[in-house]
C-alpha cells in the first residue's frame, strides 16, 4: 500500500492535489459520467468546459461528494485528494467539504445577516476560539472576496438583500472562511452581469495563489482568461485535458476543435 502511494506521488508530481481514476456517475439507469480520469494540480485554476449536459458539473460535484445528497446518484471509481481516497468509509463528507469548498451557479446566501453568512462555516467547524477571532476570519474572508469595503458598514443586514454580484462574492467569502484547500466553482458567473463577472474573474485570479481552484464554465472566453489548465467534457467523457493555451490554440481532438470553433454545443 505504502509503496504504491510513493509511486503514485512521484508520477503525479508533488503539486498534484486531486487525482481521479475511472470515475463513473449514474443517475438511476442513465450514465452521466463515463470513465473519467484526471489529475488536478494545486495552486492552479483548472477550467472544465463543454456543452451543457456534458457532465462537467456532475463531475465537479463528485470532488466534494455533493452528489451524496442526491438519492438516485451513484458514483464509482476512485478520487484521491492529497492522496487520500475520499470514498474511504473512514472519511466523513463533512470534513471533506470543509477542505473542498464550493460556489454554486446561482448565488445562494442564507437567510441570515452578511456577518452570519460568512461566520457560519468557521462556527460549525470550530475554527475560532473567541468572538474576536471569528470577527477576524470574517473580515479576512470578505477582504479576499473583495467585498469588505462594500459591506463593512452593514454586516448586520441580510445577505439576501445584496445585488447578484455581491451575493456571489459573499458566497465565495463564505467558502473561503472555512479555510478550504480546494475551491470548486460551478459556473459562478452565469447569473451575473458583465461588470460583476469581471469582478469575480479578477477575484479568481487572486485566489489561485492560495487555493486549488476548479471552475466549470460555459464561456470559452472565460476559461481562456482565467485558467491555466482546461478540460473539455463531451457526452459524459473527458475528451481532452491540457494546458489552456494548448487546448484553445492546438486542440488534439477533433471534437474539442468543433466545440471551440462553435460547431457543437
Amino acid at each position: 500500500m505504502k509503496d504504491i502511494d510513493v509511486i503514485e506521488r512521484s508520477r503525479a508530481g508533488a503539486r498534484q492535489k486531486i487525482s481521479a481514476r475511472n470515475v463513473q456517475v449514474r443517475y438511476g439507469h442513465t450514465a452521466a459520467i463515463k470513465n473519467v480520469s484526471v489529475d488536478i494540480a494545486a495552486d492552479t485554476v483548472t477550467a472544465f468546459i463543454g456543452p451543457s449536459g456534458c457532465g462537467k458539473s456532475t463531475f465537479l460535484r463528485c470532488l466534494n461528494r455533493m452528489n451524496d445528497t442526491i438519492d438516485t446518484c451513484r458514483v464509482t471509481g476512485e478520487i484521491r485528494i492529497d492522496d487520500e481516497d475520499i470514498h474511504d468509509p473512514k472519511v466523513d463528507p463533512v470534513q471533506l467539504r470543509a477542505k473542498v469548498g464550493m460556489v454554486f451557479q446561482k448565488p445562494n446566501p442564507f437567510a441570515k445577516s452578511i456577518y452570519d453568512n460568512v461566520a457560519y462555516g468557521p462556527k460549525i467547524h470550530g475554527l475560532a476560539r473567541t468572538k474576536a477571532e471569528l470577527g477576524d476570519i470574517v473580515k479576512v474572508a470578505l477582504e479576499k472576496a473583495a467585498l469588505w469595503d462594500e459591506v463593512k458598514d452593514r454586516l448586520d443586514s441580510p445577505g439576501t438583500g445584496l445585488s447578484g454580484g455581491q451575493q456571489q462574492r459573499l458566497c465565495i467569502a463564505r467558502a473561503i472562511a472555512t479555510a478550504p484547500q480546494v475551491l470548486l466553482m460551478d459556473e459562478p458567473c452565469s447569473a451575473l452581469d458583465p461588470i460583476a463577472t469581471a469582478q469575480i474573474e479578477e477575484l479568481i485570479h487572486d485566489l489561485r495563489r492560495n487555493y486549488c481552484v476548479v471552475i466549470v464554465t460555459h464561456s470559452m472566453q472565460q476559461a481562456a482568461r482565467i485558467s491555466q489548465k482546461t478540460a473539455f467534457f463531451h457526452l459524459g467523457s473527458l475528451v481532452e485535458y491540457g494546458d489552456t493555451d494548448q487546448v484553445f490554440t492546438a486542440p488534439r481532438d477533433s471534437r474539442t476543435e468543433s466545440y471551440i470553433t462553435g460547431r457543437i454545443g
Binding site: 467539504r97 464550493m102 460549525i124 467558502a175
Partner: peptide, 12 residues
C-alpha cells in the same frame, strides 16, 4: 440551493 450551500461548507 440554500441547503446545498450549507452542505458544501461541510455542515451536517
Amino acid at each position: 440551493a440554500m441547503r446545498d450551500g450549507s452542505y458544501a461548507l461541510g455542515a451536517t
